[in-house]
């Protein structure tokens, strides 16, 4: 049940040997690299040219919390990989268990982000409108959060779909794998953001 895909079937001959949905997803992810690349470069440019404008990131960031969030997202990626593995093996129960874990960890990550935003905005007076730092920080991490939320929605739909009679491990393994690719990509974007936006702020030359 991947949205927006319908392959013209009975194309016996696939010259590249790549499933169209998978190829499509990788193309989308390549394109998304440019998307997040632009968001991240906006942030880094403003941090570069206005290093002293806005609040000091070290005084507002809660790096332990963010590290925890990163850990959570990494773990969700592990379960995602296991869920994909399970569906390929035809183990529906294992697939469901792992998918639920992915969603739980995804939700944990999101609640961490919601807490972080709340903490910044209310306790530390760092808002969306707080100059360029606030603008680029919130738009970038917020967009990432939206990606996570959409991923949870997608996996949740697949999870619910797996209880219907239409769901078969053989025919839907690719749908799960494609959703998994998306989820992992969201994870690697966070790996980049965690280093470029959070950790490197703590390095002082």
């Amino acid at each position: 049940m991947s949205a927006a895909t319908e392959v013209t079937e009975s194309q016996e001959h696939v010259p590249t040997g790549m499933h169209p949905k998978k190829l499509m997803m990788w193309l989308f992810l390549a394109s998304d690299c440019m998307f997040f690349g632009t968001l991240i470069s906006t942030h880094l440019i403003y941090r570069k040219i206005y290093p002293d404008v806005g609040p000091d990131p070290r005084s507002i960031f809660d790096i332990e919390l963010t590290t925890g969030s990163s850990f959570i997202l990494l773990m969700s990626s592990l379960f995602m990989a296991l869920a994909v593995s399970a569906i390929h093996k035809g183990e529906l129960k294992s697939f469901r268990r792992n998918t639920v874990l992915v969603m739980i960890f995804g939700l944990l990550f999101l609640s961490g982000q919601v807490y972080e935003f709340y903490d910044f905005a209310v306790n530390k007076d760092f808002k969306l409108t707080t100059g360029t730092f606030g603008s680029s920080f919130y738009l970038m991490t917020g967009t990432h959060g939206v990606h996570v939320a959409l991923g949870i929605l997608w996996l949740g739909s697949l999870f619910a779909y797996s209880y219907t009679k239409h769901f078969k491990a053989e025919t839907h393994a690719m749908d799960v794998e494609v959703a998994g690719l998306y989820w992992h990509f969201v994870d690697i974007v966070w790996i980049v953001i965690f280093t470029a936006v959070y950790l490197l702020e703590y390095v002082s030359f």
Binding site: S31, F35, G37, T38, T42, L128, T132, S135, Y138, L139
Partner: peptide, 27 residues
């Protein structure tokens, strides 16, 4: 994608008061 992001940032400037390209806020 860069256009999408640029338009999104511009939209945030216009609708939500961010300062990506707004000089008063340092953009």
């Amino acid at each position: 994608p860069p256009l999408t992001v640029a338009l999104g940032e511009l939209m945030f400037d216009r609708y939500f008061g961010t300062s990506f390209f707004r000089v008063e806020g340092g953009g």
